[in-house]
């Protein structure tokens, strides 16, 4: 499709992006890898020494690692489940003939634009606070004991907050996908005597598969590194009940100044992300490109 001239130029124009991304990926990653074999604490500089896989041993045998690993999975999986389920429901609802659809859409979309720190703070203090929060007021009004969300169900509370942030994204993308569905297909299904359930299952859902893939991919990218919501609400606690891998590494390296341990954790996180990435890339490779 092109000539030698343009091909050479094209390669040249790719260079900045590729070099920058490569540098951004490789340089720090190699440093992380290097640090992960050192006994390196920021509080005692100059005493670094090579300790082999000790950091990995410590990190991987630390019960906190397993807890935060499962927390990470629960967080990503839970939010995906809620946002996809809710998103499909919302998309179908907003696709119906309703009055004021534009206003409804604006309201549904709004949480996506709220920065994570703000939404975490608002939920933590104004809604979920066990004394003065709105939910507590509501529980009292019903005559029930208010739940202390971040003490009793910390991870679930964070899942709820994060789901609230990402539901609009899923709903909006799925809505757009539904709207591109060929209405004649549904009419043909009507003529063939299909009920609402089989129409959804055999026509709407397959049509949405691309959009669903996109939602899973993009949300996973962001959900794997949820940080601010945890920092602001529970700081990972109580204990490690709401610590995910990202937060665990953060506490280890920047709060306990254990660069070596944090780096080993970072490498583990990269490996986990890679496993997820390979899986996802397969998925989108098939589903996204034409």
């Amino acid at each position: 499709m092109a000539t030698t001239n343009s091909r050479a130029l094209a390669r040249l124009m790719l260079v900045p992006s590729v070099v920058l991304l490569l540098a951004w990926m490789l340089v720090p990653l190699c440093m992380t890898l290097y640090f992960s074999f050192l006994d390196y604490n920021l509080l005692s500089p100059g005493t670094e020494e090579f300790i082999g896989f000790m950091n990995y041993e410590f990190f991987l045998t630390d019960p906190a690692f397993f807890e935060s690993f499962f927390n990470t999975l629960l967080l990503v999986g839970g939010v995906l489940l809620i946002t996809l389920g809710g998103g499909i429901g919302l998309a179908i609802l907003l696709d119906q003939a309703i009055w004021g659809r534009n206003y409804v859409r604006i309201m549904v979309l709004a949480p996506f634009f709220v920065m994570p720190t703000v939404s975490a703070l608002v939920w933590k203090n104004m809604l979920m606070n066990p004394v003065n929060g709105l939910f507590a007021h509501f529980a009292n009004w019903l005559g029930m004991t208010p739940i202390d969300f971040f003490a009793q169900i910390p991870l679930l509370s964070i899942i709820v907050i994060v789901s609230w942030q990402w539901l609009p994204f899923a709903a909006l993308i799925l809505l757009t996908a539904i709207q591109s569905l060929d209405r004649e297909q549904l009419e043909a299904a009507d003529l063939d005597g299909a009920g609402p359930f089989s129409k959804f299952y055999y026509i709407v859902l397959p049509h949405l598969s691309r959009a669903i893939t996109a939602v899973i991919l993009i949300e996973t990218i962001f959900l794997l590194s949820i940080f601010a919501e945890i920092l602001v609400t529970t700081s990972g606690g109580p204990g490690y009940a709401s610590t995910n891998i990202t937060y665990l590494i953060y506490t280890q390296s920047l709060l306990q100044f254990d660069v070596g341990g944090g780096s080993a954790g970072g490498i583990v996180a990269v490996i986990i992300a890679n496993i997820v990435a390979i899986f996802l890339m397969r998925l989108i490779g098939k589903n996204l490109e034409d």
């Binding site: 590194s225 944090g262 490498i267 990269v270």
Partner: peptide, 15 residues
Amino acid sequence: MLSTKMLPPVGVLIP
């Protein structure tokens, strides 16, 4: 390029 987005920030946090 997209896969670099998958790189968790914590992996490169310290460097």
